[in-house]
Write a protein that binds this DNA or RNA. Structure first.
Lengths: 220, 220
DNA sequence: CCATCGTGTCGCCGAACGGTGACGTCAGTT
DNA sequence: AACTGACGTCACCGTTCGGCGACACGATGG
């Protein structure tokens, strides 16, 4: 009954009235797909991230995603490729006119820069949430690209400053980064973290002050 | 989401509880459902947490979940009710034979206790990941119950110790908790966090040492 | 001219989802 | 014994999902 061709025939003809052609431009379509995927992930989160949703948002057929990116896998990989540039694009490289004399000066500044950059970037926030929620190879690659870019940035900014002796810098910095990431994610999801409100700019000032104190406590 | 055809095949769901005929015992069924829900959430994560999956694991019909819990909402609420007891059940109240003379002593110990408790509890880990990934009223209630229980615990353990003056204890502690949570989540998902490996017990010792140093840095 | 190939579109499939109405079946009450 | 109501089960609905085969169209080049 559903497959009765008699019913389908007139329908196709009626739709044909509006030509409304999509221009044949592969690279443009590819960009549209990638842009749609990024905005979808940023706005809806990884939960509702799928072939159908991306295709809908890109205004194209999902088949093209398979053809051009090899499915969601390749698409995510393409997103991950941009992650390497994230730090460079979103975080200023200069010192903001400050003289960073000690490693503590540096890490205090970098912590706040990272905090603000993350607060301003919904896409990366979603990706970080994804990283701690799923354990697929897919996500692991994303995570790796991001942490590598982050490590590079840290290293580049360090310059000739030497960290204090006797401190496991990698471990301490990892904990600081973890704190910042979770703080921002919690705030983004629920407006608070462990009883600390994180909505108004006043709230964030308090958080930033506490973060500075922690960094200074460990790095002087 | 992101289904590889490879991983599609071995989707073996939990086996039914018993071939034996189901007894007419509402309270027993309710408990079975709640237990199934908790284990499902702990093992599979919130992504695959749904009416059908819970019913399958509980070995009962999903209709009963609607009848007894009013759907997933009520079921999650029931899970959340247990969260209030989590801290009490999972974290020792005594000081482990140590004398906690200062607030720094206290927070160092509490930080490590919390870290270990979280590492040992997959259910709460999944819930924390849920909290930072979704922003529904549902999850918000879970989050609130958890943070309230945590605050109570902190307060109870504090005893008569007074935190140092001039420090925003709430903010600093929130950041410490955030760091611990993210560290554990990252480790659980990818075995590392910001370039810091978190697999072997040796890795965790390094993390614990760094955490202690941070706590001591801010609280003396 | 026709043949080929890249591009875009369409419709269908099997599966899983959340949700609901209807139907057995058994226990306690009247 | 008959009724009632709670407990458990089943089948079905509409929707969405990922994935695939087939086709329409336009450009390109023999």
């Amino acid at each position: 009954m559903l497959n009765d061709p008699m019913v389908l025939a007139p329908v196709t003809e009626a739709i044909r009235v509006e030509p409304e052609k999509r221009i044949r431009d592969r690279s443009a379509t590819e960009k549209a797909i990638l842009k749609a995927a990024k905005s979808l992930l940023a706005e809806e989160g990884f939960q509702n991230f799928g072939i159908n949703a991306v295709a809908r948002r890109a205004g194209c057929d999902k088949q093209l995603i398979y053809r051009y990116y090899g499915g969601l896998n390749g698409l995510v990989e393409a997103i991950g490729a941009d992650l390497g540039n994230w730090v460079r694009d979103r975080i200023p490289e200069d010192t903001g006119g400050m003289f960073l004399l000690t490693y503590g000066d540096l890490m205090e500044r970098l912590s706040l820069l990272f905090l603000e950059a993350l607060r301003d970037d919904p896409l990366v926030r979603r990706i970080v949430a994804w990283e701690v929620s799923e354990s697929t190879e897919q996500v692991r690659r994303l995570s790796e690209a991001r942490s590598k870019a982050l490590a590079n940035w840290l290293d580049r900014m360090r310059g000739s400053l030497t960290p204090p002796k006797g401190v496991d810098v990698v471990a301490v910095n990892a904990i600081l980064i973890a704190a910042i990431q979770h703080l921002v994610l919690s705030a983004s999801a629920g407006g608070q973290c462990a009883g600390l409100a994180l909505k108004t700019s006043k709230d964030w000032e308090k958080a930033a002050t506490a973060l500075k104190r922690i960094v200074r406590g460990v790095y002087g």
